[in-house]
Amino acid sequence: MEKIYSRTLTIQENKVSGFCPGCMHSTVIKLIGEAIDELGVIDKSVAITGIGCCGLHMDYIAYDNITAPHGRACAVATGIKRTSPDSLVFTYQGDGDFASIGLAESVSAANRGENFTVIFINNGIYGMTGGQMAPTTLLGMKATTAPKGRNAEEHGYPMHVCELLDQLTAPHYLERVSCNTPQNVIKTKNAIKKAFKYQLEGKGFSLVEIVTSCPTNWGLDPLDALDFIEQKMLPEYPLGVVRDKK
């Protein structure tokens, strides 16, 4: 019998996911693994994981990993890629990590056109610390540090990372995708693979923003969280290619 699907090589054997039910980190980590497998670059892949739920990434994977201080993944990636240019280097960061505490490191690395890839997980909230407001939290969305919901007068507006980086000249490829439907999962994998290919071709900075759910801190069951993405998150964060220099 022809084998058409098997365990992703880059996922460690005998590991049970510690992510919450409905969390899409496990989906994205598997997609990264599939992209690495298919590109045949396991032996040169390096992940720089941020702090927060994104940091749990390291427990499940078989490629090299370094944990960056909160927000500094793009600086750490700069140091690795500049001195080990043949490695496939990518950061894996949540919205608090990339867009709040790490905004200076993130924007500066993008502005330098560093030749690595950012996998940016946008679920509009801090997960590991228990549901605090993120730069990406929607207006009206409740968070433990915005108990009445985010309001523009006090907290400003949700931050659009792809569009923000689109103001810079250097970035090569910016796309926003989601994992809320099977079709979108496939598009997410294609975007990750495209970003990795661009890096291997030396094209410079790429970022894939993935709109995901956090059922636990959104206070929704996993299926309702999918609806929330469709009805609330995607109107604020429209999917699609923001920039592709090809």
Partner: peptide, 13 residues
């Protein structure tokens, strides 16, 4: 902050 973390990365490599 960024500089020392670049060194962290380069030295880790």
């Amino acid at each position: 902050v960024a500089s020392v973390n670049m060194v962290y990365g380069a030295a880790a490599a």
